[in-house]
Computed example of a mutant assay.
Amino acid sequence: MVNQELLKKDELWLRITELEYKMKHGMSKEAFEKEVRRIYIEEMGEELPADMKIYTSSESSELKSDYDGTVLYFENEEKNISQLYVISQGSNDSGDWLYNAIGLFQGKDASQAEDALNLLDEAEVQFGLKGKQPVKIALGHSLANNNNLTAQVLEQEFNQIYGVNGAQINVYQLYTADTDFRQKVNQNFNLLRTDKNAIYTLPPDKLEQFAVEYIEEKIDTSSIHQL
C-alpha cells in the first residue's frame, strides 16, 4: 500500500515514543536514528525501508512554551513513502508541571499544543515539504497526548494520532485556544465576551457535551487511537 504507516505497530511506536525522551537529555540525532533503526528491525524483522531526517524542538527559536518534541521524516521515493511523525514529549520537568496546573487543570493555557503545530510547520520548511502532502502522524504519552489532540482540533494537521496513558482534551483549555469554539460557546450559553471567567459558571456536564459535539464535527475521531 502506498505510504502505509511505517510505525503503526503498537510496540514499535511505543518504544520510539519512549526513546524520544532521551533527546532532551543529550542524545545525538545520529544515536537516535541508529536506535530507531535497531528497534524497527527488532519489531518488524526487516530494515527500515526509508531515509530518515530529524528536527527537534531544541533547534527552534520560535517556540513560546516549554514544549519538547521531535519530528521524524521518512522518505523513499521508489516506494512512495513520505511520512512525518511528530513525537510530542510528556511531562518531564518543572515547566511542564506548571503547565499542567495552569493549562490542563485550570484550562488557561494551550501554548504547548500551539507549539506542537509550530514545530511541525518548522520541520516541513526544514525538510522542504511545503506544498507537498506527506502523511502526518502524532505520537505522545501523558501531557503529549493532550497537546496532540488539542492541536488536531485547532488545525486538523494529522492523519492519525496515537497516544498512551494520555491526558485528554480540556474543554476550558479549548475555550482559551480555539476562537471558533469560544464564539460558539458564548452564543449557545449567552456568555459575555468580556467575561473570561463566565465559562466556569456553566454546568460542566452540559459544557462537556457541547464540546464533544463540536469536536466530532471538526475532526475524524476514528483517526485517534489511545492505549
Score class of each variant (00 low, 15 high):
K8T: 13
L84F: 06
G26W: 04
Q173F: 01
S91I: 04
A198S: 12
Q173D: 00
V164D: 10
E59Q: 09
Q168H: 15
K9P: 08
A151I: 01
L149T: 08
L174S: 03
D220G: 07
T179N: 10
M1D: 10
G26K: 05
I54C: 01
E59I: 00
E47R: 13
W13N: 06
Y40K: 04
N165M: 15
I215Q: 03
I87F: 02
H225V: 10
L174V: 00
Q106L: 09
E43L: 08
Y40R: 07
G140W: 06
G69F: 04
F32Q: 02
L48M: 06
D121M: 12
E78G: 11
N186Y: 07
I137P: 00
N148V: 15
F210Y: 04
A151P: 08
T176F: 02
Y21M: 03
V171R: 12
Q83S: 00
E5M: 12
I199A: 05
N145C: 14
I41A: 13
L63F: 06
K8I: 12
E208W: 03
A31R: 00
I199V: 13
Q4E: 09
A144N: 04
A144F: 05
D68K: 13
F74N: 02
V171F: 02
G103H: 04
E43P: 09
S142H: 02
Q112M: 14
N118S: 15
L154K: 08
D109I: 07
E59M: 05
S94W: 15
D115L: 09
L12C: 12
K206E: 14
I16G: 02
N186H: 11
L48R: 04
I137C: 04
L72G: 01
L149A: 09
K196G: 14
L207Q: 03
E217W: 12
W97F: 11
S28C: 01
V86P: 03
E217N: 15
D178V: 11
S65L: 04
E114W: 06
E43Q: 13
Y85N: 02
A110G: 07
A31Y: 00
A151L: 09
D115A: 06
S57N: 08
I199C: 00
V2T: 11
Y67A: 10
